[in-house]
Write a protein that binds this DNA or RNA. Structure first.
Length: 424
RNA sequence: GGAGACGUGGCCGAGUGGUUGAAGGCGCUCCCCUGCUAAGGGAGUAUACCUCAAAAGGGUAUCGAGGGUUCGAAUCCCUUCGUCUCCGCCA
């Protein structure tokens, strides 16, 4: 959510930011809506002041037992009252319209975010590991996994497209990955483990920015709740509607959860394999910081996500997303892309973003500076550390062997009951 | 699912129609006093919005949320969310 006062003060800056997002200039319209709102509020408050004064007089007359004066004064209130009703309605609609407009606009990109429209304009920041040279024909994960217990047909019979069933050591590998990642973030990187609800209400999803614009991407329950598309939603909303003490921060939280996405806009994309599922596991990282900490925290968080790939011996690169490719709430985003031999390309496996105060405003999550009087909005960051399903894909493809088996990276073996290889 | 109770400031807790943003207590901050500690005295201690070039100042709203009754609502009515108790069911 944007601060209308900032827009009022620096409309040109705001419109430049929106232009980088590929949007038309917005400031003029928003300022006009705000002016209308403020005028209505002022008028209403004047009317309320008058009402309060008159009510007091009426009260005095009543107490004195001055029936005549009481009736005369009461009669005069009728006009004021209907005027107030009109003004109240005007304020309500003015606020609603302004908020609707504000809530639908994406966050402003940070200054250093590259210009660009899509992934082709993203900027490579660094690269780790060498894509492996295979001395046999490398399969993609569907073929490799198919021999090890990955079954899309059974899943389709149960649930439809974009679901998978994992069996045997493959199921265990998924569990091992989740446990390994979670333990790493908790024990080595100082994140606090949190267990969260998978079903959340409107306000939570609005807070992180999926609502109102992206309702189509989410699953909704019969009783009006939403299945979380990422643990970012419950984790971030943990600090909502509260004024926190400054010395709490940074707060670092992590959770291993299932994530549910309708993939409404992805018809026909990534239909093969595990890349794009309606349901997948993910270890999420969320940091809540004061405004001065968030820049550094994003670098730190990205490193925490990268560490998972290094320990899993998976080559990857770090991309700084261009303005057009960033998510709605993000101010700056680093994507981690892991090398996928089966597709001969890098694929996104983590996305680490700082949202600045954008989500905090929507959630009304604030802190008190240094125990003093000043209050400000917090900053929120989120990142995957990592997506378990895609990590599984990367393992199958990168660590496959000529005989159809898959080597289990050293770091994962304690979680695999000592299995070093998954055999067909 | 059935029956009932309750939601007041950081916390506890008064308050059933008229200067109540809200008594009292605790906590916290500052000051005074005390050799230290303990005790004591005094002052202060919500948020948002509007107005103002800004500060000062002024105004409005907020007693879970939304709506209604009323000249006037923390107080009455309705809806909703949440909490608790009992019964039923259940991993």
């Amino acid at each position: 959510m944007h601060d209308i006062r900032l827009i009022r003060e620096k409309p040109a800056v705001f419109d430049i930011a929106m232009a980088r997002r590929g949007l038309e200039p917005q400031a003029q319209r928003l300022i006009a809506l705000d002016a209308r709102r403020r005028q209505a509020v002022s008028r209403l408050q004047e009317a309320e002041t008058e009402r309060n004064a008159r009510s007091r007089e009426i009260g005095k007359a009543k107490v004195r037992g001055d029936e005549g004066r009481f009736k005369a004064l009461s009669a005069k209130m009728a006009a004021l009252k209907s005027e107030m009703e009109r003004l109240t309605e005007e304020v309500r609609t003015a606020e609603e319209v302004l908020n609707q407009h504000l809530a639908a606009l994406p966050n402003c990109p940070a200054d250093d975010v590259p210009k660009g429209e899509d992934e082709n304009d993203n900027e490579e920041i660094r690269c780790w590991g060498e894509p492996r040279e295979f001395d046999f024909r490398a399969d993609d994960h569907v073929a490799v996994g198919g021999r090890l217990g990955l079954d899309f047909e059974r899943a389709a019979a149960l649930s439809g497209a974009r679901f998978a069933v994992l069996q045997g050591l493959l199921a265990r590998l998924e569990r091992a990955l989740g446990q390994f990642m979670l333990d790493l973030q908790i024990n080595k990187h100082g994140y606090r483990e949190i267990s969260v609800p998978y079903l959340v209400r409107d306000e939570a999803v609005f807070g992180t920015g999926q609502l109102p614009k992206f309702a189509d991407d989410l699953f909704r329950t019969g009783d009006g709740r939403w299945l979380i598309p990422t643990a970012e939603v419950p984790l971030t909303n943990l600090v909502r509607d509260f004024i926190h003490a400054e010395d709490n921060f940074p707060v670092r939280m992590t959770a291993l959860t299932a994530c549910f996405r309708s993939e409404a806009g992805a018809a026909g994309r990534d239909t093969r394999g595990l890349i794009r599922m309606h349901q997948f596991q993910k270890v999420e990282l969320v940091s809540i910081t004061t405004p001065d900490q968030s820049e550094e925290e994003l670098e730190r968080m990205t490193r925490c996500a990268e560490d998972v790939l290094r320990r899993l011996e998976l080559p990857y690169r770090v991309m700084k997303l261009c303005a057009g490719d960033m998510g709605f709430s993000a101010r700056r985003t680093y994507d981690l892309e892991v090398w996928m031999p089966g597709q001969n390309t890098y694929r996104e496996i983590s996305s680490c973003s700082t949202c600045g105060d954008f989500q905090a405003r929507r959630m009304n999550a604030r802190y008190r500076k240094g125990g003093g009087k000043a209050i400000d909005f917090l900053h929120t960051l989120n990142g995957s550390g990592l997506a378990v399903g895609r990590a599984l894909v990367a393992i199958l493809e990168n660590h496959q062997q000529m005989d159809g088996s898959v080597r289990v990276p050293e770091a994962l073996r304690p979680y695999m009951g000592g299995h070093g290889v998954i055999q067909p």
